[in-house]
Computed example of a mutant assay.
Amino acid sequence: MAADSPDPGEEPPDGPPAPPSRRDETADEPPHPAFAEYATESVPAAAVGSPGKDGRLELRFEVDGNGETNLVRDLVRAPFHVSGTLGHDPLPEAETVYVQSPTGGVAQGDRHAVDIEVGADAVAHVSTQSSQKVLSMARNYAAADVSLSVGSGGHLDYVPEPTILHGDSRFCQSVTLELAPDASAVVGEVVVPGRLARGERFDFERYLSRLRVRRERELLVDDATHLRPADADPSAPGVMGEFAVLGTLYVLTPASGDTSDDAELSDRLHEVTNAETDSDGRGDEDGETVRASATRLPNDAGVAVRALGHRAETVTAALRAAWDEARIELLGVGAPDSRRP
């Protein structure tokens, strides 16, 4: 939704920095050149009464006079649904929202727009109730545009459940994060290249996920995962090798000016992820092994953790160990317990 531009002499409004907007792009313009070949393919009209192709989710969190975070705005359009907030965060003043979807998954032609704003000093955790299934496609593609912003002294955990790519699916996700100088965030992603229990593995057509992080409009991080099995074998050495599941956790830290802070955090996250994956001493043959590592992000932006494994559950567990450690560093308390059984 467009807003009037402020006069040059006006003070900037309170709250989180405005996220970079791409809403003025035409509906037919692909989010990445790699998807241009699909954009011209028309999609059959949906049946009357079926969920809309253009899903929308808007969430805004603000702190009240008691220092507690509240969800002050929620706007949803199918396939998104929000039933309310959950107060189960180990940080009493924080707030949690689980996003639900009543549909069977992401279909061809779907366009999803997600905007999450966390105000000054607010602490919010946003996740999904279940895995996101990207369904098989014959035409066009599906895209998600996720815009996140965190105000001064605020913190956001955006850690959805895994994305499962069905055979012949095409999915492009763009995540932009705008941070105030003293704000922090944790952004997670796990991608599963098929319904592994059914023998699907790298049967999807194209997958692209890109994260861009800015602080005061300065680009700090631009990282992407782009897989197209028909062009390059994902199981090749140096890509995913023997593993099927890929997970990434980005820990974005406040600007401190001390480069040793992120180096120490990187070492700790590397240690806890490997402690999680090696604690039982099992080998590759049981399908439980995870290979994980942590590295500093450029521009003193924080730390990235990557994990490869055979199952979504084991990769998620490794990233959760890193998330828990990072949250202790950033907020003094660990990550919320999972609500999934």
Score class of each variant (00 low, 15 high):
65 G>L: 11
88 H>L: 13
252 L>S: 02
100 Q>E: 04
249 L>G: 07
234 P>F: 03
192 V>L: 04
87 G>V: 01
2 A>H: 11
46 A>C: 02
176 T>I: 05
222 D>H: 12
285 E>S: 08
171 F>E: 01
185 A>G: 08
71 L>A: 05
252 L>M: 10
339 R>D: 06
186 V>P: 00
286 D>M: 01
72 V>E: 07
287 G>D: 08
171 F>L: 02
296 R>T: 15
317 A>Y: 04
5 S>T: 08
75 L>T: 09
220 L>M: 14
82 V>N: 13
35 F>R: 00
31 P>I: 14
307 A>K: 07
190 V>P: 13
327 R>S: 14
31 P>Q: 08
311 R>H: 10
258 D>P: 10
318 A>L: 06
300 D>Y: 06
151 G>S: 13
107 A>P: 00
94 A>T: 08
190 V>H: 10
225 T>G: 02
172 C>N: 11
340 R>Q: 12
88 H>M: 08
227 L>M: 12
223 D>K: 07
219 L>Q: 13
65 G>P: 10
159 V>Q: 06
275 A>W: 04
261 D>K: 09
338 S>N: 11
305 V>F: 02
305 V>K: 03
170 R>P: 15
188 G>T: 04
21 S>Y: 00
77 R>C: 03
239 V>F: 09
24 D>A: 14
145 D>A: 07
242 E>Y: 00
185 A>N: 05
8 P>E: 07
27 A>R: 13
76 V>Y: 08
198 R>I: 02
37 E>C: 12
278 D>M: 10
42 S>V: 10
151 G>L: 09
339 R>F: 10
178 E>C: 06
117 E>W: 01
93 E>F: 03
314 T>K: 01
95 E>N: 08
211 L>P: 00
6 P>E: 03
66 N>G: 13
212 R>E: 15
274 N>A: 12
86 L>M: 05
317 A>L: 09
285 E>R: 11
73 R>W: 06
149 S>Q: 06
323 W>H: 13
15 G>D: 07
14 D>T: 03
239 V>Y: 04
134 V>Y: 02
94 A>F: 13
70 N>I: 00
233 D>R: 13
330 L>A: 09
184 S>Q: 11
315 V>H: 06
279 S>G: 00
138 A>R: 15
332 G>M: 09
80 F>N: 06
185 A>M: 06
106 V>K: 02
206 R>K: 09
91 L>F: 07
248 T>P: 07
85 T>W: 05
142 A>Q: 08
18 A>L: 11
321 A>Y: 04
48 V>G: 01
152 S>R: 15
27 A>E: 11
174 S>K: 07
1 M>N: 09
165 L>D: 14
116 I>R: 04
341 P>M: 11
121 D>K: 11
188 G>A: 15
26 T>L: 13
292 A>Q: 09
299 N>A: 15
53 K>D: 07
201 R>Y: 03
100 Q>C: 01
282 R>F: 04
62 E>S: 13
165 L>G: 08
191 V>N: 01
220 L>R: 14
